[in-house]
Design a protein around this nucleic acid. Sequence first.
DNA 1: TCAAAGTGTTAGCCTATACTAACAATAATA
DNA 2: TATTATTGTTAGTATAGGCTAACACTTTGA
Lengths: 126, 126
Amino acid sequence: MALQESGEMYLETILILSNRLATVRAIDVAEQMGYSKPSVSRAVGLLKKDGYITVDGDGFLSLTHSGRQIAEQTYERHILLAKFFIRLGVDEETASADACKIEHVISQTTFEAIKKHAEQSIQPDV
Amino acid sequence: MALQESGEMYLETILILSNRLATVRAIDVAEQMGYSKPSVSRAVGLLKKDGYITVDGDGFLSLTHSGRQIAEQTYERHILLAKFFIRLGVDEETASADACKIEHVISQTTFEAIKKHAEQSIQPDV
DNA sequence: TCAAAGTGTTAGCCTATACTAACAATAATA
DNA sequence: TATTATTGTTAGTATAGGCTAACACTTTGA
């Protein structure tokens, strides 16, 4: 079945953690997301079954090609949306929280339109 | 408990239908949303229990004050977001679909920032 | 009048996704 | 080495919110 919103969130979290830590395991994901170990264990099993991540013998998680694609796409959306909201005057925390919700439901079409708009309306620091 | 995304969607639908029909009943909501009668029946029961709508002896649905507030807020978000996306070059259908998702998850803060931005950047027809 | 259509409800099922409790396996250390 | 801590899994629970099947009214109209 297609990846749900929560699946995207797990992949994005794994990406972010792997940019910060040498290795990523389920417990790191649980701590980062504020979820219980069993919830993450289950999610990891599903993501693995569907080919989005691999888990090696030591319990280290890695994104597969398709998993990484989704994680990066989601993360790009997050960064750009949050930046855009901040530029509109929204505080960082709210901007990030909203980006975190919207990144999963927005279409590629609309995201790209916002991206183009945001890039166009950048005010250079003269 | 707090109103969920689906509850907002029901209230918004009832508002839209009541602007279009003399009376609104569960079956109209079901047809409009593409849901089954039992799903709507259940949702109507919950919305009624929580004081967002009333149902009279003939099965006609009305928004209460709090229900109308939420419906109007949600609808306002929908309209403004969709317009904004369309102005950025997104086709109507996609813009509306995205607005429909985002309207439920965006914070008031971020919505107002987008609203202000959208109003500022209106290009008057000279 | 009596059958058919329209409307709503009840009962029970399904999926997604979180949770706790309890256990198992491994690693670290007194 | 024996205990404790860390990590992961299993089993079962809960909530939200769809669904179908089946039934009960009510209204309509031949």
